[in-house]
């Protein structure tokens, strides 16, 4: 409930839509509403969910981050190459993976605030650079032979997938952060009206740096979790992930122009995408059609949202 508190009625609309779709699916396919399948859905959305929460910080400030997918790859490669059996304790590969993402995000932030480069361009550059870096570091080959401790991060804990636990923790912390901390409030203010934020004594550049840095850090987390799950550091992993993450954020009612949105909405958006993918799988719809359906839903959701805004 905490996640939902300050999110507006449109998130409730989204929640209702999600419940309706779940109901319809459970009627059509009894296999849908089972605990294993629901856990499966959660596992499938965990990576996208973590990235979507991260990019929510950036989108709330009125920016965007296109480098997420590449940061996932490079973080995964860095973590994996430190995670061979008997090489290091578990903490080091995890830490270095997350730090790699954080560094990428921080550079994005620097280019946007100091270099005055539009976020779209700055992070587009990082997208290419980080992808190249992932290929260089891995010599273009998947980094395999990882320690059991590391790959266990992609497994279950007491029956619940660890990636899902990570996502839940990140989402809760972020929701509390954005609602209760001064810096969280400032993120909304910067996205809502940068000039007014400056005039209110807010260090806009610092707020943006924090947002891009956090987004990068969460991309690092996603990279580590993904590497653990697929038990390799894949330099070609994560292509297009940024777009799925942005789609979840937008479906969740966060405005691309900044200042409006919530983590609750983002999680609902990610869930909606996940449930629909899963449902189409269960209904034996080929992935070619799934792509079409997903695109229509993204645009449709935003369309509806715009209509609500007008009225």
């Amino acid at each position: 409930m905490r996640l939902m508190r300050s999110s507006s009625i449109k998130s409730w609309g989204l929640a209702i839509a999600l419940v309706l779709i779940c109901l319809a699916l459970s009627l059509a396919k009894p296999g849908f509403l089972t605990i294993p399948n629901l856990l499966n859905v959660m596992r499938q959305i965990s990576i996208n969910g973590i990235l979507a929460v991260g990019v929510t910080y950036v989108i709330l400030t009125g920016g965007v981050d296109l480098s997420l997918g590449s940061l996932v790859a490079v973080s995964g490669v860095v973590a994996a190459s430190l995670a061979h059996p008997n090489q290091h304790i578990l903490a080091l590969p995890v830490l270095m993976g997350v730090l790699t993402g954080t560094l990428g995000g921080a550079i994005n932030g620097l280019v946007v605030t100091r270099g005055k480069v539009a976020p779209f361009i700055a992070t587009l550059g990082m997208m290419t650079v980080a992808r190249g870096l992932a290929l260089v570091l891995s010599s273009g080959r998947p980094v395999s032979n990882l320690s059991a401790e590391f790959t266990r991060l992609g497994g279950d804990l007491a029956g619940v997938p660890i990636p899902v636990i990570v996502l839940a923790a990140i989402a809760c912390l972020s929701a509390v952060f954005l609602q209760n901390l001064r810096l969280g409030r400032y993120i909304y203010a910067v996205g809502g009206n940068e000039m007014a934020a400056t005039a209110s004594g807010i260090n806009v550049a610092a707020v943006k740096m924090f947002s891009y840095g956090t987004c990068g850090a969460l991309a690092g987390v996603a990279g580590v979790v993904l590497a653990a799950r697929i038990t390799t550091g894949q330099p070609n992993a994560g292509v297009g992930y940024e777009l799925d993450a942005i789609a979840a954020v937008v479906i969740g009612g966060t405005s691309l122009s900044g200042g409006v949105g919530s983590i609750g909405g983002t999680i609902l958006g990610a869930l909606l995408i996940g449930v629909i993918n899963n449902g189409l799988d269960l209904l034996n719809v080929t992935s070619y059609y799934q792509s079409i359906v997903k695109g229509v839903i993204i645009v449709g959701a935003v369309c509806l949202d715009q209509k609500q805004h007008k009225s």
Binding site: R182, Y188, A189, M195, A196, A197, A199, G259
Partner: peptide
């Protein structure tokens, strides 16, 4: 400021959040 739209207000934020925007002293609100 003379231009409240540009420098004075964050239009999408609530009255409460606008009022306190330059007076948040602690990290935890």
């Amino acid at each position: 400021s003379e231009d409240r739209k540009l420098f004075g207000l964050v239009p999408q934020m609530s009255v409460q959040h606008n009022l306190t925007l330059s007076s948040l002293r602690q990290h935890w609100i």
